Amino acid sequence: LLVFNAVNVFIMAWENQTFNSDFILLGIFNHSPTHIFLFSLVLGVFTVAFIGNIAMVLLIYLDIQLHTPMYFLLSQLSLMDLMLICTTVPKMTFNYLSGRKSISLAGCGAQIFLYVSLLGAECFLLATMAYDRYVAICHPLRYSVLMNQKICGLMAASSWILGSLDGIIEVAVALSFSYCGAREIPHFFCDVPALLTLSCTNTLLFERMIFICCVIMLLFPVAVISASYARVIVAVIHMGSGEGCQKAFATCSSHLTVVGMYYGAAMFIYMRPTSDRSPTQDKIVSVFYTILTPMLNPLIYSLRNKEVARAFKKVLEKGKCAEEIA
Results as ranks from 00 to 15, higher is better:
residue 29 F to I: 05
residue 186 P to G: 00
residue 170 E to F: 05
residue 117 S to D: 01
residue 143 Y to A: 13
residue 219 L to E: 15
residue 175 L to F: 15
residue 177 F to Q: 01
residue 226 S to E: 13
residue 59 L to W: 01
residue 110 A to C: 08
residue 106 A to W: 08
residue 196 L to D: 04
residue 190 C to F: 09
residue 250 A to T: 14
residue 223 A to P: 04
residue 22 D to H: 10
residue 254 S to A: 14
residue 217 M to A: 14
residue 163 G to Q: 01
residue 292 L to F: 14
residue 175 L to M: 14
residue 319 G to C: 09
residue 216 I to H: 03
residue 215 V to A: 15
residue 203 T to V: 11
residue 278 S to M: 04
residue 324 E to S: 04
residue 289 Y to V: 03
residue 215 V to G: 15
residue 4 F to I: 08
residue 311 A to L: 03
residue 236 V to C: 02
residue 252 C to T: 13
residue 4 F to C: 05
residue 146 L to D: 15
residue 199 S to Y: 07
residue 232 V to W: 12
residue 204 L to N: 11
residue 50 F to M: 06
residue 134 Y to N: 08
residue 31 H to K: 07
residue 199 S to A: 15
residue 315 V to W: 01
residue 95 N to S: 07
residue 40 S to L: 08
residue 312 F to H: 10
residue 74 L to A: 14
residue 49 A to I: 03
residue 10 F to S: 10
residue 38 L to H: 04
residue 248 A to P: 00
residue 112 I to A: 01
residue 314 K to T: 13
residue 82 L to C: 02
residue 264 G to W: 00
residue 30 N to Q: 07
residue 305 N to Q: 02
residue 22 D to S: 12
residue 39 F to W: 06
residue 62 L to Y: 06
residue 94 F to C: 03
residue 285 V to T: 11
residue 174 A to P: 03
residue 108 C to Q: 04
residue 323 E to L: 12
residue 64 I to G: 00
residue 22 D to Q: 10
residue 270 Y to E: 06
residue 55 A to W: 07
residue 162 L to W: 13
residue 192 V to A: 05
residue 10 F to W: 14
residue 159 S to V: 00
residue 269 I to E: 01
residue 35 H to E: 14
residue 143 Y to K: 08
residue 223 A to L: 15
residue 232 V to I: 15
residue 100 R to W: 06
residue 235 A to C: 03
residue 231 R to H: 15
residue 61 Y to H: 10
residue 316 L to R: 06
residue 76 Q to K: 09
residue 127 A to V: 03
residue 262 Y to C: 01
residue 271 M to C: 13
residue 80 M to F: 15
residue 162 L to H: 04
residue 91 K to S: 11
residue 151 I to M: 12
residue 35 H to S: 11
residue 303 L to R: 03
residue 188 F to V: 05
residue 58 L to S: 06
residue 311 A to T: 00
residue 198 L to P: 09
residue 154 L to I: 12
residue 283 K to V: 04
residue 179 Y to N: 06
residue 159 S to E: 00
residue 254 S to I: 00
residue 22 D to M: 05
residue 59 L to N: 03
residue 317 E to T: 05
residue 316 L to M: 10
residue 175 L to P: 00
residue 104 S to I: 07
residue 240 G to A: 08
residue 183 R to T: 02
residue 172 A to K: 02
residue 106 A to Q: 11
residue 24 I to L: 11
residue 317 E to N: 09
residue 288 F to E: 03
residue 232 V to P: 05
residue 169 I to L: 11
residue 51 I to T: 06
residue 15 E to M: 07
residue 171 V to G: 02
residue 161 I to F: 15
residue 276 D to R: 05
residue 157 A to R: 04
residue 10 F to T: 02
residue 184 E to I: 06
residue 259 V to N: 14
residue 102 S to Y: 10
residue 213 C to Y: 09
